[in-house]
Structure formats: structure tokens, C-alpha cells
Design a binder for these strands. Sequence first.
DNA 1: AGTTACTTGCTGAACGTCCATTCAGTATGC
DNA 2: GCATACTGAATGGACGTTCAGCAAGTAACT
Lengths: 203, 203
Amino acid sequence: MALTQRDAARSRSSILDAAEEAFARSGYDGANISEICEAAEVSRGLPSYLFGTKELLYRAVVDRAAERLRERTIEPLRRQSRLSSIEATIELFVDTYVDFLASEPSIVRLLQWEMLRDEHHTGPFAPTSQLFAEVLAIFNDVLKKRSRATIGGPALLASAVALCFFPFMARAKGFSIAGADRGTLRKHKERITRLLLSGIRSS
Amino acid sequence: MALTQRDAARSRSSILDAAEEAFARSGYDGANISEICEAAEVSRGLPSYLFGTKELLYRAVVDRAAERLRERTIEPLRRQSRLSSIEATIELFVDTYVDFLASEPSIVRLLQWEMLRDEHHTGPFAPTSQLFAEVLAIFNDVLKKRSRATIGGPALLASAVALCFFPFMARAKGFSIAGADRGTLRKHKERITRLLLSGIRSS
DNA sequence: AGTTACTTGCTGAACGTCCATTCAGTATGC
DNA sequence: GCATACTGAATGGACGTTCAGCAAGTAACT
């Protein structure tokens, strides 16, 4: 056969793709390994062989997703933060974060499931918490330049994340922005940015 | 025995209490009926006897929770909306909604789990979607009184819910407001209200 | 070029555990 | 004595994990 068989790296990523889809759709408990094997077109035993347990497979999925999140939202922010005003920082954050959430619907769901698995957030395994902390540090840094900051870093970040994230998780019709076109996303971003900035200025 | 045995109503609500706690903590798949029986101090077979299946028990829990949500956030709003300005409506909504979320941590989690169970939101069983629609109708109604509304009802409601709800679901330290004291809650409410109102005025 | 030996990738049936559901049977109140 | 409330052991299915075994690649040696 010309088809490459026995390619461990390909098998790994194929399983990770299928597992991410399954965990995003059904959560940790709801997903089962058989359906993952079927979607990944591998045998029933391979995930255990490559990743050990279901829990370890799940962590691999979340880690890979967290890495994408970091690359596409934190890194751009970190590169610009030294020179930017708080206005520009917020604008950049909203822009990259909303684009990211729109392009990665399964990560949106993974993050939601993760928020509900509380053992992780008190325990040592808390990738999302750590990412939040990094963005917070950047926000605090930029806010310090303002002599009269009318809002704290945590409150500002919490509002920003809430306004960006929520429309992607709510599925009630009229609220969900999941699967929206470019124009709708742009208006959404503008609205959020304007609201956050008016919150900084006023008061 | 003086203790009342064989009290179907008491058994029902005792099971509902335990089930709500279990479903809120672990979700539908993660919760198991044995632990619910233990917490409710009833026999292993009683939940099935009274509610039929696990799915029906879950629906009973969600319905009861949705009823509490309606009573404490929609009803107060409905009573005042006819006479109120949009400012007063927002203030009242934020006030009652935040108080409700703070006093009902397990409903916060139930709502989060519910948002992830997508079959329900496209299917006929969607209590939360319907509640959102009711509040939206009220917002639209009040907004109509303004000749020059600078924001749509859906966008306004989405922002309000996002800002109120998110701090209760995020568990990253520095963000979570779950278990906060009265003063912190008051400041939180004031901040949100101010932000939303400045979003209406400016633009 | 062919044979051997060894490593690595992978398979799928078998196993054990967990868990929702069922139901024959018991207790209770009227 | 009859309906209602409740019990808990039995049942069967779903699912994660294990593992003996097979196949594919690689290297060394003839």
C-alpha cells in the first residue's frame, strides 16, 4: 500500500481532533471513546495505547486548545502592550478575542465545560485560570500609565471577557452570535469596545 | 413512630433538593442516582418510582429552578415595566438578577449545564430560552418609549445578562464574585448599571 | 537479495466496573 | 382489605482499560 500506515504522529493528532469534537459536544462524561475511535478511524484500543486514560486524553485536548488560545489572543496583546494606551489595548483584545471565539466554536464549548469542572480550578491543573492571569497582568500594566484610573484591572477584564464571550455561549435565539458573518462580528466588536471605553471615560 | 413516614410530597421535594445539588455539581452525566438517594435519605428505587427516569427527574429539577428564576426576576420586572423608564428597568433588572444569582449558586451551575445541552435549546424543552424571550419583550417595550434609541433590545439584554452572569460562573481567582458579601455585590451592581447606562447615553 | 532478529504501531476481544431501570415483595395508613 | 408508599436485590447494557498477538518498518548479517 502506498498509504502511510503506522504513523504515530498522524494517529495522535487524528485522535486529538476527534476527541476535541466529542468533548466539546458532550463534555467529559458524555463523550465516549468508541465514538472518538470511529470519527478518527482508528481501532478501539489506540487512544488508550497512545494517551493512557480518558482523563489524560482530555487533558491533552485541553492543553492543545489552551495553546491555540494563547497564541492567538495573548501573544498579540503582549507584543503591543508596552507601547499602547488602554484604549488601544482594549480594542486589540476585543478584536482578537472575538475573532478567535468565532473561529473556534469547539474551544468555546471546551472552556464552558472546563469552568464547570471545579476540581481543576482549585487544583494544579488550571490552564484557563493562568491565561486569565496573564491578560490581567497586561491590563494592570497598561492601566498604571493612567494617573486617574476610574476602573480596576480585574473589573475591566471581567467586563471585557463577559461581553466578548457570552454571545457565543448563549444559544437562545436572538442572542447567539455563533456562526455570524463578518459584518455582524464587526458590529458586535464595535459595540463592545464602545461600551467598555465609555465605562472608562465616564464616572 | 411519630415521625411521618410514607409522605409522598416530602419524599418528592427531598429527592428534588438532593438531585438539584448533584446535577448542579456534576451535571447530568456526572450525577448518579445512588448519591442522590443517599443525600435524600431514601431507598435506591424511590426516584425511579416517583419520577420515572433520570431524564425526567432532571427535567423536574430544571423546571422547579426555572420557576424560582421567573418568580424572582421576571415577575418584579413585569410589575414595574409599564410605568418605568429604560434606566429604571435596567437598574431593577440588574438588582434582582444579581441578588438572585448570588442567593442561588446551584441554579447558576444548572443554567451553565443547560446551555451546553444543545438538544434542549433547539427542541421543545427550553425553559431558559423562553424566560429570556419574556425579558426581551419587556425591554423592547420600554425601549419603544424612547424616540431615539441608540441600542437594540437584544443587544442591551445580552450585555446586561453577560455582565451580571459572568462573574458568577468564572472561577478564576480575582474574577469570581460567588460567595461575596453584601457590599461587594452592591458595588458590582452599581458598576454594571453605570456601564449599561453610559452605553445607552453615549454613542 | 534474502534471511533473521528486534522494535514500534496497532488491533479487538475479553474483563470488570458502574449505573439506570425493573419488579416482586413488604410496610403503612385508611 | 385495599390502595398507596416504599424497598433493595436482580438485570442488563454501556463503557474504560487491559493485553496477547499481529503487522509493518528497520537494521544487521549472510
